[in-house]
Design a protein around this nucleic acid. Structure first.
Length: 561
RNA sequence: GGGUCAUUAGCUCAAUGGUAGAGCAGUGGAUUCUUAAUCCAUUGGCUGAAGGUUCGAGUCCUUCAUGACCCA
């Protein structure tokens, strides 16, 4: 038999054979002591997840052989999912790694032996007994007790190949997690990263807060929101695209350093870098400016990557990485680690355009250089010339985007996106040129920065940076605009854009302007895409690899329910 | 949104247009210190869906569904 229904029936029959106990008993409960016992044993075993630790082989050497047992040895617990049967051994998977049990029917009581007889791969089971050293030098729990803990009615994926089908991995993440242990380790690493971010900010006196996810006004970022509705109040609401405007209200209220880690929602496409819901870290710091945040960002990412590397050595240096085959990374294994140890570049947006254009045919360097002057007349003419040149050279998609850029600032931003962004990894390298380096792009045009403070020296620009790693935007920060009348004007501008058909434009947030009129201290704010940071740090090819349940179209039902 | 590729047994994969196969898992048996346990036997398929071409389609064509990758 081999259809799914037949495989399930065979397992159900095994469940019935358990008699009174039944396939889903409730009698096994793990105490902290038992979990520590298990963890110590798995660590002693040395598994893929734990890695081999110094001194462990010696510790195994000290274990007695089976025929050397005196009966005085301490009992060890091992419990989890049965993932393999080899001769008289069961391999049991735990969160800390795999461990094996030597289960001989004649060493067990009658009930235990009967239960052992009907164990299926994927079942939950528990054993206890002395830890021994096998003839091949491995560690094993020689079971004096075996207990059925829970039945798996569906068969697990092939034990050697795991679950490779990408769609199935995402749809049935619960299978992916136990069939491919490194997937689980990656999500533990994600948790470590979030905790390290939190620790870093709390260490600097930041207060963690929670602000609404349901907004009645669109604002905080230029993005298409999800719409919903509150029935009792008969109120149209939007899922937030950013927490920014609420967090800055807290600055007005005197909470000088605040941060929030939480979900944002943007009603946009799905790709290897985008999921409609994603996790953002935003923090706001009174009496600081954009440059302070740049320093802090660099320090924070170094610290977080240091903590993550220390906590997850097997992801940083995957076992067997030396004999790496050239097979694609289809089973969700980590593909490496980015330490953030290299110095970050800091380049103005205009300089980055120059860097890109330098020495290239077809674009007149002096024309481009003129872009960098603050002389409005000069750069006005030069820009048109360069812009026209670029329009001819770029692809159709970029050309359409550039055609919509009507003002000086938006054209500069358009040039950056079209010319520079795709080439950031080759433009900015580590000192020895061996790897790409993170780069802060600074000084953004005001047109694309409706919430940022103008530069004192030139009001066409704002004090803002975006951090690009591996050519992907991970962070965005700026000195905050605290002039209420300037802010009101920017909101007006957003309204005009909405009337012009821009679905990403913000609403006029009158209460926010009122908050600013009460006086917001000079401040700077920072936002970081947490999913992207995890993805970049552990070099995952897709954001879906770091989201437990990425958005997919609902599976087509085949059995009519 | 555009292009390329994929979809075959529970899982991982094969099959010049000519009888749909293997390994694992399952089932029955043997063995019981194994490391992807081994040995013998054996069950299992509407080849993603619907049309078409053909004497004959898993394979060629069209449409659709889902996913992956690239481009934007």
């Amino acid at each position: 038999m081999a259809t799914e229904a037949e495989l399930m029936a065979a397992r159900a029959k095994h469940g019935e054979a358990l008699g009174e106990l039944g396939p889903f008993p409730n009698g096994f409960r793990a105490t902290v002591d038992m979990m520590q016992s298990r963890q110590a044993f798995v660590a002693l075993s040395g598994s893929e997840l734990v890695g081999e630790q110094p001194g462990r082989p010696v510790a195994r050497e000290a274990l007695p052989m089976e025929d050397g047992l005196t009966g005085d040895e301490p009992e060890v617990w091992l419990f989890g999912r049965v993932v393999a049967k080899r001769g008289p051994f069961l391999v049991i998977r735990t969160p800390e790694g795999d461990g094996q049990a030597l289960v001989r029917a004649d060493a067990l009581g009658e009930t235990d032996a009967a239960a052992l007889k009907v164990v299926d791969l994927g079942d939950h089971a528990a054993v206890r007994g002395p830890a021994i050293r096998t003839r091949t030098g491995a560690a094993a729990v020689r079971a004096t007790h075996y207990q059925h803990v829970g039945k798996a009615l569906l068969p697990p994926p092939a034990k050697w190949h795991g679950l490779k089908d990408v769609e199935k991995r995402y749809r049935e993440r619960y299978v992916d997690l136990f069939a491919n242990p490194r997937v689980g380790e990656l999500f533990r690493a994600r948790s470590t990263i979030v905790r390290a971010l939190r620790d870093f900010l709390q260490g600097q006196g930041f207060l963690e807060v929670e602000t609404p996810l349901l907004h009645s006004i669109r604002g905080g970022a230029t993005a298409k929101p999800f719409s919903t509705h509150h029935n009792t109040l008969d109120l149209p609401l939007y899922l937030r695209v950013a927490p920014e405007l609420y967090l800055k209200r807290l600055l007005v209220g005197g909470l000088e350093r605040v941060f929030e880690i939480g979900r944002c929602f943007r009603n946009e496409g799905v790709s290897t870098r985008h999921n409609p819901e994603f996790t953002i870290l935003e923090y706001y710091q009174a009496y600081a400016n954009c440059d302070d945040l740049m320093d802090n960002c660099e320090a924070m990412l170094r610290e977080v990557s240091r903590v993550a590397a220390q906590a997850h050595p097997t992801l940083v240096n995957p076992p067997g990485a030396d004999d790496a085959s050239d097979e694609p990374n289809v089973d969700g294994d980590g593909t490496g680690f980015r330490s953030f140890d290299v110095p970050f570049h800091r380049v103005t947006m205009r300089q980055s355009i120059l860097d890109r254009v330098a020495g290239r045919e077809g674009l007149h360097p002096t024309g481009v250089e003129a872009l960098l002057t603050t002389d409005a007349v000069m750069h006005g003419e030069a820009l048109e010339k360069v812009f026209a040149q670029v329009m001819e050279k770029v692809g159709r998609e970029h050309r359409e985007a550039l055609a919509k850029c009507t003002t000086y600032g938006s054209k500069i931003y358009g040039l950056f996106e079209a010319l520079v962004e795709p080439h950031l990894t080759s433009l900015y390298r580590s000192a020895d040129g061996s790897q790409d380096a993170p780069v802060f792009i600074t000084e953004f045009p005001i047109e694309v920065s409706p919430l940022a403070r103008r530069k004192d020296a030139d009001p066409q620009w704002v004090d803002r940076f975006e951090l690009f790693v591996d050519g992907k935007e991970v962070a965005n920060a700026f000195s905050e605009l605290n002039d209420p009348e300037d802010q009101a004007g920017r909101f007006q501008d957003q309204l005009l854009r909405r009337e012009g058909g821009d679905e990403e434009a913000m609403d006029f947030d009158a209460d926010y302007v009122r908050a600013l009129r009460h006086g917001m201290p000079p401040a700077a704010g920072f936002g970081l895409g947490v999913d992207r940071l995890v993805m970049l740090m552990f070099r995952q090819p897709s954001i879906r690899e770091v989201l437990l349940f990425p958005l997919l179209r609902p599976a087509v039902s085949t059995d009519g329910d």
